[in-house]
Design a protein around this nucleic acid. Structure first.
Length: 235
DNA sequence: CCATCTCAGCTTTTACCCAA
DNA sequence: TTGGGTAAAAGCTGAGATGG
């Protein structure tokens, strides 16, 4: 469904995104050519193997980007939230999408066609630089994810994941840091390359150890230092 | 031997439909 | 609209297998 209410000039995550340096006039030009869609949870935005025709920009909500293996197991490559762009790497390298993107909650996502995006990069070096930064950031995260899987055990990986969630989705409350993200145990498992059973067991253990409290999918971090210790990281 | 995975079976929660 | 019934999904646990 088309949602004309979202305007690039006034988009809430604008200052966090790669288009933060564009002038209001130029943004209104993009605004005129972009398409905004509202997605329900679990709706696919693009599929692995499809050709990219433009860039997706998350306005609100959350999206998981994952690869599926031959046995149907998913591995989540990254999560995208407000201000994040998706599908830009394949657009730049002229390759089909390497992963599938699916919403994990209700989301508003803008689509900017390839021509417009290319024109922005050619005429706005600062924006091109922000895109490069995003690319470098994603690459760094991917390297970190590989290292985590190779070097850490499952317990450490889950603790490290909760700490990255703290930085990204943490909300300080009375009893601890509430994580403002709702993932199934299976999705948590897909993020750290393990089975959902292992995640369930570890969550129960963390709960028993007083590190976290859990209410359904809602996780609250109670003991951050202990979580750092469990993740084998130094605060 | 230990950490982890896989499988099976169970309980709980959620979603959906339908009648009142 | 709400309450009950039902099915599906999610969550949990134990046992055994596997691989380093």
């Amino acid at each position: 469904m088309k949602n004309p209410s979202v305007q690039c000039q006034t988009c809430a995550p604008r200052n966090r995104g790669v288009f933060c340096d564009l002038s209001a006039e130029y943004l209104s030009q993009i605004n005129a050519s972009k398409v905004t869609n509202k997605y329900s949870p679990r709706q696919v935005i693009f599929y692995d193997g499809n050709n990219p025709y433009g860039l997706y920009c998350v306005c609100s909500g959350k999206v998981k980007i994952f690869k599926m293996d031959s046995e149907g197991h998913q591995q989540i490559v990254r999560l995208a939230g407000p201000g994040d762009i998706m599908g830009y790497r394949c657009l730049l390298s002229n390759e089909p999408y390497m992963a599938t993107a699916e919403t994990i909650e209700e989301s508003e996502i803008c689509f900017i066609d390839k021509t417009t995006f290319t024109h922005i990069l050619e005429t706005h070096p600062k924006t091109a630089f922000h895109v490069m930064s995003a690319l470098a950031h994603d690459l760094g995260n991917a390297e970190g994810q590989i290292l985590n899987i190779v070097r850490k055990n499952v317990r450490e990986r889950l603790a490290a994941l909760l700490l990255t969630f703290k930085a990204k989705y943490g909300e300080n409350g009375k009893q601890g840091v509430k994580l403002n993200i709702s993932l199934t145990r299976e999705e948590l498992a897909e993020l750290i390359g393990t089975s959902q059973e292992s995640v369930i067991r570890l969550i129960s253990e963390f709960k028993q150890d007083g590190i976290i409290s859990v209410k359904g999918r809602q996780i609250t971090l109670l003991d951050i230092p202990k979580l750092f210790e469990t993740a084998s990281l130094v605060d």
